[in-house]
């Protein structure tokens, strides 16, 4: 569903701006998120993703522009809107003095659920995030991945209309990330609207139906991962890695190998629709890279094209 087809988007932002004194963290961004959609903010650290998420989460007043969530204005109806949101913040906010289960039970109480309702829901959610065996343990000794899963369970306690996830898998090992992605994917299948920020393009490709790329407080591109790749990159990429010092001597020898050349500190990226042909052409010119890798374009390439730098820097 695109925003145009949906009469009332769950989130509607126009000219949304956040300033901290003189510093502009979010500069007049526009976006809509429809019900059931999985929407992502992709961008490097400091791009304004978290500030945007905090405004959507109704914990940070909007400086200028329009923001409507579930049809309401956060500056007026913040607590009511928050009652229908589930939030997975970048930094954990679990109560380390309480048990795993009590963390969920007390959170349910914040949404006005009865004790009985809270306990039933807490146990079902612990089952879902595979923490049922740790229910009585304290939070402190849990691994990073477990804490994240507990935070996700907590965010689901009120059957939220929108689940906001700010860098949900940053700092987790690959296994923990995949388990988390699996759970988020199940939620998406059940119709939960997901809004997430990430600086991992694989995460964005896995989870997002549609995303915006943010850079320096602005939205620089919008579309599905596939659309963005088609629009801003070629089908394939040939990565040429040269021996130390060689790359600097290649002036003029790389031009025309593909539609576009990107020089990174450690390798050269050749963008074309036929990566093998580009590699063969390089070989014909007498270039002798140490390694050659032909791959499909990814969001990383889109980002590189749009901002001139890689995502995690």
């Amino acid at each position: 569903m695109t925003p145009d087809e949906s009469p009332t988007p769950l989130i509607h932002a126009r000219g949304l701006t956040k300033k901290f004194g003189e510093f502009t963290a979010v500069d007049a961004v526009d976006f809509d998120v429809a019900s059931g959609e999985s929407f992502g903010f992709l961008g490097p650290n400091g791009a304004g993703k978290t500030s945007t998420m905090r405004m959507v989460g109704c914990v940070s007043p909007v400086t200028a522009g329009t923001l409507r969530i579930l049809g309401l204005d956060p500056n007026v109806d913040g607590p009511r809107i928050r009652g229908r949101l589930g939030v997975v913040p970048q930094q954990d906010t679990l109560d380390t003095e309480l048990s795993v289960r009590d963390n969920l039970v007390i959170y349910a109480r914040y949404f006005g659920m009865s004790h009985a309702e809270a306990r039933t829901k807490a146990d079902a959610l612990l089952e879902f995030v595979q923490l049922a065996e740790r229910a009585k343990d304290k939070v402190e000794p849990l691994s990073g991945g477990m804490k994240r899963r507990l935070t996700i369970a907590r965010a689901l306690i009120n059957d939220p209309s929108i689940l906001l996830l700010d860098e949900p898998t940053t700092g987790l090992d690959p296994q923990a990330r995949h388990l988390l992605w699996d759970r988020l994917y199940r939620l998406k299948q059940q119709g939960v609207t997901l809004v997430l920020t990430t600086h991992y393009m694989d995460e964005a490709e896995q989870l997002c139906d549609r995303l915006v790329v943010m850079d320096k407080a602005r939205i620089v591109a919008e579309g599905s991962p596939l659309q963005l790749i088609e629009r801003y990159s070629t089908r394939e990429v040939t990565e040429l890695r040269f021996a130390v010092g060689v790359q600097e001597t290649l002036d003029g020898q790389l031009e025309g190998l593909g539609e576009r050349i990107e020089r990174l500190p450690d390798r050269v990226l050749v963008y074309s629709n036929d990566g093998e042909a580009a590699a063969a052409a390089a070989n014909q010119r007498g270039l002798r890279p140490e390694t050659v890798l032909v791959r499909r374009s990814s969001l990383e390439d889109v980002f590189l094209r749009l901002t001139g730098r890689s995502l995690v820097d």
Partner: peptide, 15 residues
Amino acid sequence: GAPYRLRSAGDLPRR
């Protein structure tokens, strides 16, 4: 699946 119940967007209780 998750123990999740889809609620209507207009279900916005005041507390």
